[in-house]
């Protein structure tokens, strides 16, 4: 039985992970900003076999509220074996270009709030000297593209942060996982026209995430073929890249 903290528990990908853990009889502490979604998710996971489910309402960008959240999680579970940070939002790139406030808000939601949580929770796991810290970034962080570089920059910040945090945590027995999903059919991508062959389901991605945590992987692309796609995209020379529009 593991004790698992999920931030952004109303996300479709997080929910699919939580169902796998509930099925295994793990204990869950769910954090999301919408009470109704939080309650409905908690009920479902209880019925599916979670040992216990506690929910906590919090907006992830409310940095001042993080400490209380951790305190509640420790009261409920005493220790944390797995942290999954899943919240995020896909902004309209055009709005970000026109309005600095929107751009910074998106950086805060996808980048700094995650870094703040990782900082706080890393210290907790360091004290425990065990556990896994997993954050969902994105393939979008692998290279800035004109269509979503604000989102990509925030995700890249999370990935780079994880890369540095990993060796520090490794020495105290704590595992750090950076999860880079490709295209997944969730509310985030609803309404976008996506190349069908490249779109995965939250269930498939969740299986890979749970396995990546079990196997203490450093970085995973979900599904794996995105590793190859991103290798190709990263190797496009600047002279060509700056002429592309995607």
């Amino acid at each position: 039985m593991k004790r698992i903290l999920i931030v952004g528990a109303s996300s479709a990908i997080a929910m699919a992970c939580a169902r796998i853990w509930a099925n295994q009889g793990d204990e869950l502490f769910l954090v999301a900003r919408d009470v109704e979604k939080l309650d409905q998710t908690a009920e479902d996971l209880r019925a599916r076999g979670a040992k216990a489910v506690t929910s906590h309402c919090m907006d992830a960008t409310d940095i001042a509220a993080h400490a209380l959240m951790l305190e509640k999680a420790l009261t409920a579970m005493r220790q944390i074996d797995i942290v999954l940070i899943a919240h995020g939002s896909l902004p309209c790139q055009k709005d970000c270009e026109q309005n600095v406030e929107v751009a910074l808000r998106e950086i805060a939601n996808n980048g700094t709030s995650v870094i703040a949580l990782l900082t706080l929770l890393a210290n907790q796991l360091e004290e425990q000297r065990c556990g896994s810290l997993a954050a969902i970034s994105s393939v979008a962080g692998d290279r800035g593209r004109p269509s979503n570089y604000v989102y990509g920059a925030a995700k890249a910040a999370v990935s780079t942060f994880c890369e540095g945090l990993r060796p520090r945590m490794y020495k105290v027995g704590v595992h750090v996982l950076d999860i880079k999903p490709g295209l997944v059919a969730t509310p985030m991508t609803q309404g976008l026209t996506l190349p069908k062959a490249l779109v995965s389901t939250p269930e498939k991605v969740a299986k890979l995430i749970v396995r990546g945590i079990e196997n203490k992987r450093a970085t995973i692309y979900t599904p794996g073929f995105w590793g190859i796609i991103m290798l190709i995209i990263r190797s496009i020379p600047q002279t060509l890249f700056k002429r592309l529009n995607f």
Partner: peptide, 13 residues
């Protein structure tokens, strides 16, 4: 597709 409540004593879902 969420389960809302289970009652295994009476077999109701």
């Amino acid at each position: 597709d969420r389960i809302i409540h289970v009652d295994w004593q009476h077999g109701r879902v």
